[in-house]
Amino acid sequence: MERNAPIQHKGKKLDYTAEANFENEEQAREFYKIAKKRLLHPYDWYRIANLPGAKFVITDHEGRDLIRKMREGDLLRIDIPGPGNSTGDGFDWVQIEEISEHIEEPTVESCSVTVRPAANPREKDNTEVAHFFKNIATSTFLVKREKTRLKAEYHGRNELVNLEVDKLSDKLRNALVGLLAKLGLSTPQWKSLIEGFVDTKSKTE
């Protein structure tokens, strides 16, 4: 499903896939609704991943919490384990750039979300990206049903460490977090999250 992710130009790229198979299309269609709901409600991602990792909160353009499914233009406030980003008030921030749905009834239906590093919405006069990656980077999450098969995918593209920050502490922190990501320490969480989207035994819906 490469076409669901932005084009890779430079930096690191990541791809993870998980799937579940069902006895018939009716079962697959019903579970697709659950997987789609899991995808669009990131405040549940911490539980879905079932691993100690990042926590996600949807906010508006003022940085105020929103308890609903995500929409294009919303932001996600990310609390990752370890030192925080002072530019982001201790958090990393991304904007929900695109939510795309595709339907080819009755055999295919999909929903994807692409996010991109963004500035801290609480600091209106500061346009500096509050994330350990530059804003050329994107993360795309996808759930898709093809007949009786359900797939979940993650595509990270153009992952370049963000050292274009004013504060030395943030530069050092971003370099450290970016290095750990490059070494694969973020892999278990993304892998577990993607598997969680299609986990038929999970009670998170």
Rank of each mutant, 00 (worst) to 15 (best):
R3K: 13
A5N: 03
G11E: 06
K12V: 03
Y16D: 02
E19H: 12
A20M: 09
N21T: 15
A28Q: 04
A28T: 07
A28L: 07
E30R: 12
R38T: 07
H41Y: 15
R47H: 15
L51F: 14
G53D: 10
A54E: 09
K55G: 04
H61A: 11
G63S: 12
R64M: 09
R64Q: 13
L66W: 14
L66K: 15
K69Y: 13
M70H: 09
G73Y: 15
L76I: 15
R77P: 05
I78A: 07
P81K: 05
P83C: 14
W93E: 07
E97G: 00
I99Q: 02
H102G: 02
E105R: 10
T107L: 10
E109Q: 11
V113A: 01
V115A: 05
P117W: 01
P121K: 08
E123H: 12
N126A: 09
T127K: 14
F133Y: 11
N135D: 15
N135C: 03
I136L: 00
A137I: 00
E146C: 05
T148I: 14
K151Q: 14
K151C: 08
E159P: 03
D166Q: 12
L168Y: 13
S169L: 10
N174E: 06
A175F: 15
V177P: 00
L180D: 03
A181M: 09
G184F: 11
Q189L: 09
Q189K: 08
L193Y: 12
D199K: 08
K201C: 05
K203D: 15
E205R: 13
E205Y: 15
